[in-house]
């Protein structure tokens, strides 16, 4: 995520006493370890305990429970996300924003601490505001909700941090800008002023899944209801494996569907490595009412039967969730060819 400091709003060209740092909160990751036998250990009847330095965390002494599945490569201890990574459509973008009273910031480079006037500046009423600019032309800038707690300003002693977390559902490909504004009141013994600065963080959101659909007619059902088959190919165009969790249809009124995929067959959810595709299929038909007849014909727009939208949910590494839905799907209705008896 590239970032830049927006030109300061206020005329004072003095360094700010508050700093802003951000970290994208993707899921934490399990730490890998490569356990090995301690060198120079005596050959003995049992395998020696593994060298503690080769484990992801130190085994604790005197306890009977060992939570480390060594020699397995994954351990249950987690690391914070090391870098920004890639952002994908369908994921929730989470980010933590930290405004800190950076006492050392008051010192200009090369300036001696004693050269400062009264160091006793107090920082009050610190507030963070954040908004997201999405790539759509003329798209409005979305103000973001910051949690936890209220957005009331708080006072920070030197070294203290105001931390907030924002969540934003990524729905579009392209350039996003997270704009963060920090404002605070800087008070000295004799005077005070309100100061503000703004930082912009730019990142690119990529497509995660390509969905190709095809609909075709099926023979009319027993109660005279029209039926169609909807097929979809889901291709992972991201860089990480994803496990498909659910594919569901949100249909227009008067239509029902049956799922022909892993839920129906009771098989394992498909795992899609980058570049792999999974084919899914649904049978869509007009709902049959209590009377045993079709209550209402499916609505058609310009001779096109509209089914509804297809929603796809998946989980990435460490369970990172993704969900996206297609546009409205449908087909021009053609009577299926009658098969000669």
């Amino acid at each position: 995520m590239s970032h830049q400091r927006y030109p300061s709003h206020d005329a004072v060209k003095e360094p700010h006493s508050v700093s802003l740092k951000v970290l994208r909160l993707s899921r934490p990751s399990l730490v890998t370890q490569f356990p090995l036998q301690p060198p120079l250990s005596d050959p003995s009847s049992r395998q020696q305990p593994l060298a503690p330095a080769s484990l992801a965390y130190s085994p604790h002494d005197g306890s009977d429970v060992d939570t480390n599945p060594a020699p397995f490569v994954l351990s249950p201890i987690v690391n914070l996300p090391p870098s920004f990574g890639s952002a994908y459509v369908g994921e929730t973008f989470s980010c933590t924003l930290c405004a800190s009273h950076d006492a050392v910031n008051l010192l200009a480079p090369g300036q001696d601490e004693s050269a400062l006037p009264e160091v006793a500046r107090s920082i009050r009423d610190v507030r963070i505001k954040a908004e997201m600019k999405t790539p759509g032309v003329g798209a409005p800038v979305t103000p973001l909700d910051l949690g936890p707690g209220s957005d009331k300003g708080i006072d920070l002693a030197a070294g203290e941090t105001l931390q907030k977390v924002v969540d934003f559902d990524l729905k579009e490909e392209g350039n996003h800008v997270l704009a963060v504004t920090v404002s605070y009141y800087e008070a000295t013994d004799v005077s005070g002023r309100t100061r503000t600065f703004r930082k912009l963080y730019q990142f690119i959101c990529k497509a995660s899944l390509i969905v190709r659909t095809k609909a075709g007619p099926l023979s009319v059902g027993g109660q005279g209801q029209r039926r169609w088959v909807l097929e979809a190919q889901l291709e992972n165009c991201g860089e990480d494996a994803m496990r498909l969790e659910k594919v569901v249809m949100d249909l227009e009124l008067g239509l029902v569907y049956s799922d022909c995929n892993w839920e129906a067959s009771g098989t394992q959810r498909p795992l899609l490595h980058p570049g792999e595709a999974e084919q899914v299929c649904f049978v869509v038909e007009e709902a049959v009412g209590d009377g045993g007849s079709v209550d209402e014909r499916a609505s058609e727009e310009d001779g096109r039967v509209v089914f509804g939208v297809l929603g796809i949910g998946w989980r990435g590494e460490m369970g990172n969730r993704g969900f996206l839905s297609t546009g409205r799907l449908g087909t021009r209705h053609v009577e299926p060819k009658k098969v000669a008896a």
């Binding site: 965390y57 604790h60 306890s63 987690v78 977390v165």
Partner: peptide
């Protein structure tokens, strides 16, 4: 229940995710 290093580290990571990094 335990003084396992892993448990404390993971708890600290969780604290950051809920906005209690301090």
């Amino acid at each position: 229940e335990s003084d396992d290093e892993m448990i404390v580290v993971n708890m600290a990571v969780c604290l950051l995710y809920v906005g209690r990094m301090q």
